[in-house]
Amino acid sequence: MELQTAEAVLPAKEIHPFWYKLKKNPMTLAGLAVLAVIVLLSLAAPLITSFDPNKINVVERFQGPSAKHWFGTDEVGRDIFTRILYGTRLSLGIGVAIVVAAGAIGTVLGTVSGYLGGKIDQIMMRIMDMILAFPTLILAMAFAAALGPNLQNAMIAIAVVKIPVYVRLARGETLALREKLFVKAAVTFGIKPWRIIARHIVPNVVSPIVIQVTLDIGDAILLVATLGFLGLGAQPPTPEWGAMISVGWKYLLDYWWYPTFPGLALFLASGALNLIGDGIRDILDPKSGR
């Protein structure tokens, strides 16, 4: 007997649900818009401003906001607007690098530990509990101080502190996935565990991890800035937002613009990233809308 060929149910062209839900989520759109403006401005920095972020010009030190220096100048006469623009690249880049590294390492550790279970899993979880037992900032400070005060070490410290969040997230998802029929099917085919982890577990764990990563970028930037503020992160004269606030803080009463504008930039960027993270979580949650 000739077999009837079934028609594909879904037509080829339609709006992707992601964009549909995005359109219905104005706060996320606002966050995306703000972030886009910040990123574009920083990329176009050489076109927008003619100043050099590191060029010292003592004659023009501590000038208030004006047509020439929009956000004023600092104690050695550098244009603060220019330094914020160039600092964006650094701060955002650092934030992204930290959480992506933490997310990747956490995903690997969490999925392997969750899938294999047993002793490996127990030891792994105890280590993560230990890290989580300390307040993030204190632990990051301790690591950074132990490694030596520079930007790279601050990044490593923050990444290490962030890893347990991802391990737990990935492990939890893995435990649920391990019971899924498609994973059991793979087991019956005789597929090796490492391949099951790579082909089935990790791809299905990625979306909650990405959400967490987006939510954490703002937090990581803040932590870098805090370490910078405490003198444990980027060292002056690097145009990093935290370092700028850290130095500018001393001049707040006399020259309010110096720490205020970098602070505002930090506030805007981390706020935008949080809105985006929340939005992506709503969008990827299958229970929200249809």
């Binding site: 009837q4 079934a6 149910v9 879904l10």
Partner: peptide, 15 residues
């Protein structure tokens, strides 16, 4: 004997 199956599927209710 083979069952008398109904070929195809239910039409897309959006179209």
């Amino acid at each position: 004997e083979p069952l008398l199956a109904i070929g195809g599927e239910v039409p897309d209710l959006r179209r």
